[in-house]
């Protein structure tokens, strides 16, 4: 019994060590965001500011209007996450629960679409948007989320659905339920964990997107958080204390979302089992 406890302490200590290393960049971000310029650049480095300069945050806000960026980012992210959840679940349902011709081929095609880097298709897609008369704004950024939601998400949801006994569908079908009712009334409540996982992955994807907004957003007042952060990096040197304060602000909402959903998050992946 005693060795068990010792083991537990040793393992925890090992994890704590790794965890500290993992947190170090966060620490460095936070510590730099509270320093004066001269202090940040001290060498040997100073590990914690002598006086904490919380004023860096308000002054960073004049360069990085977080509220506006946040709203813009949300206006893109929220509908996109919804679209991804909706259409990836639909696709996953078909691939996991229905037998139909060319199912394998469809599945392979969907997965293969993951292989093409997005940077490559910027120009043809942009030209298409120009052709339909919407060369910019939020719509071109949100629209693709309603088109299946990406191979990775479809795959994750499909795996999760495969783990749910098919008897449930059969029983519902006996009661006269169609596919939509089976999906919405029977399966959806069980899908909560994987929906949260997919939602979180999707959220982070959109939260961090850089190239999309660069191409499609042309008005300063529509800038997103990731863009605002990238804008700090001018051609000639960088104002680190401001950029660190801005980075801390940019990370915060994502962290909050994570903690809100974390209880279900791992479960969503556990139950999907990721078996083929």
């Amino acid at each position: 019994m005693k060795t068990r406890k010792m083991n537990r302490i040793a393992l925890t200590a090992l994890l704590a060590l790794l965890g500290a290393a993992c947190l170090f960049p966060f620490f460095w971000m936070l510590r730099s965001s509270l320093m004066g310029n001269a202090e940040i650049y001290n060498y040997p480095p100073v590990f914690w500011p002598k006086t904490m300069r919380f004023g860096n945050y308000p002054s960073a806000l004049t360069l990085f209007p977080f509220g506006r960026y946040f709203l813009n980012t949300m206006m893109i992210t929220v509908p996109s996450v919804f679209g991804i959840l909706l259409t990836s679940t639909m696709a996953a349902y078909a691939l996991a629960r229905i037998d139909f011709p060319f199912k394998r081929a469809m599945f392979t095609l969907v997965i293969a679409s993951m292989l093409m880097p997005g940077t490559v298709t910027i120009i043809p897609i942009f030209k298409a948007w120009v052709a339909v008369g919407i060369p910019g704004g939020f719509i071109p950024l949100i629209f693709p989320a309603f088109l299946g939601g990406g191979a990775f998400n479809i795959f994750l949801s499909r795996q999760f659905l495969m783990g749910i006994p098919k008897d449930l569908d059969e029983a519902a079908r006996m009661d006269g339920a169609g596919h939509v009712r089976i999906l919405v009334q029977v399966l959806l409540p069980l899908l909560k964990p994987v929906l949260i996982s997919v939602g979180l992955f999707a959220f982070i994807l959109y939260w961090n997107d850089l190239l999309g907004p660069l191409i499609y957003i042309s008005r300063n007042e529509q800038n997103t958080i990731a863009q605002g952060l990238a804008n700090f990096r001018g051609g000639f040197g960088t104002d680190y204390k401001a950029i660190m304060a801005a980075s801390c602000m940019a990370v915060a909402p994502a962290v909050a979302i994570y903690f809100a959903g974390q209880k279900y998050f791992i479960e969503g992946i556990v139950l999907s089992g990721l078996k083929s």
Binding site: N37, A38, I40, Y41, N42, Y43, R233, G237, T238, Y240
Partner: peptide, 15 residues
Amino acid sequence: KNAMPSIDLMLLSGK
């Protein structure tokens, strides 16, 4: 490339 602080800080901090 791109990791250096801006020139005022390079000079100010005596780097």
